[in-house]
Design a protein around this nucleic acid. Structure first.
Length: 199
DNA sequence: CACTCGATCAGCG
DNA sequence: CGCTGATCGAGTG
């Protein structure tokens, strides 16, 4: 019955949706692990990419890329840049904290435009987990009131656009085994280890 | 609409 | 252990 539907997309508003709709700027975050890439929209952080290659300058253009809607001549564009740069400082601090096994003090606004209600429900649930606190896919399913949607929860974790900050690495399989991770199991293990989790 | 595919899970041998 | 069926959401044509 209740079929999935997308939220917040501009589809009916006469804007153009497009695959990268709303993604205005990509900024890099250098860390010990390598260079992360944060994607920002007009309303917040929309994506976070793991470093491409270990310890290398993985992104061309120095990681700073202006796109449509970011014109510095346009007052609105300037405002967006200002917001984004502020969010980026928050993102950077948060990422470094989690990579160090500590809790993020605060997060930038997260832009989940175009994602389904189900996915957002899962991700919101993940945000409740602190460092070292793990749950199983089944427990998340239960928590969002869909106890049987176990595999679907796995699916939502796998499409989480903002890993690390939305801590999908804290979701384990039922038997406290590692489960999967789109960013690579080694990364999941390493993140968990730094949070003091023993498998 | 009718498929297919999963970062699942519990049960059973 | 390994195998299997149940079950749900997302993606595809």
């Amino acid at each position: 019955m209740n079929r999935s539907f997308k939220i917040g997309s501009n589809r009916s508003a006469g804007h153009r949706p497009g695959p990268t709709a709303g993604r205005l700027l990509k900024l890099t975050i250098p860390t010990r692990e390598g260079i992360f890439l944060a994607h920002y929209s007009e309303t917040g952080l929309a994506g976070l990419d793991f470093p491409k290659a270990k310890g290398r300058t993985a992104f061309k253009n120095g990681g700073r890329r202006s796109e449509v809607g970011m014109s510095v001549n346009d007052p609105a564009g300037r405002l967006r840049q200002k917001n984004i740069l502020r969010w980026h400082r928050t993102t950077t601090a948060a990422l470094k904290a989690v990579l160090a096994g500590r809790a993020a003090k605060n997060l930038p606004p997260l832009d989940w435009t175009g994602k389904t209600e189900f996915q957002q429900a899962v991700w919101r649930e993940l945000l409740k987990l602190g460092p070292g606190e793990t749950k199983s896919y089944g427990e998340i399913a239960e928590a969002i009131g869909k106890p049987k949607a176990v595999r679907a929860v796995g699916g939502a974790c796998g499409t989480n656009p903002i890993p690390v900050l939305v801590p999908c690495h804290r979701i384990l399989a039922a038997n406290k085994k590692i489960g999967g991770f789109s960013g690579g199991l080694e990364r999941k293990r390493s993140l968990l280890k730094r949070e003091g989790v023993n498998l």
